[in-house]
Amino acid sequence: MTNPLSNISLGVVDSFGISLLGFAIVFMVLIVLLVVIRILRSAVESFEASKAAPAAAAAVPAPAAALTAAKDPNMVPAKGSLGDIKLHDVDDKTAALLMAIVADEMQAPLNELRFLSIREKK
């Protein structure tokens, strides 16, 4: 079947109408594609996040707790053993420094030591 618009001359009004339609279609297709991309991204991200959450929970227990659990699965970690150290008049930096020095002096890895509180003696 011959295309009636093929190889013919067009008037100003018709050519303007076809141009407008063509430009609108390009916009429409790319805007729908924009929406598709947004949906695709959010779907992929939420899927990956839901997949990563349980894996992260299973994979990152506190080292000290993991070690204790490995030794005795029935043992409940003592309060403060998961990094809840009480600091009395000591800033974080000094506390970290002190813990590192203690671990070095005791020749024991830091994650095998449990610090309950650090207090500055005045």
Binding site: L20, G22, F23, V26, F27, L30, I31, L33, L34, I37
Partner: peptide
Amino acid sequence: MILGAAAQLGVYC
């Protein structure tokens, strides 16, 4: 994507 569509203006002009 909007800018990629807008830059087809010359095609129709």
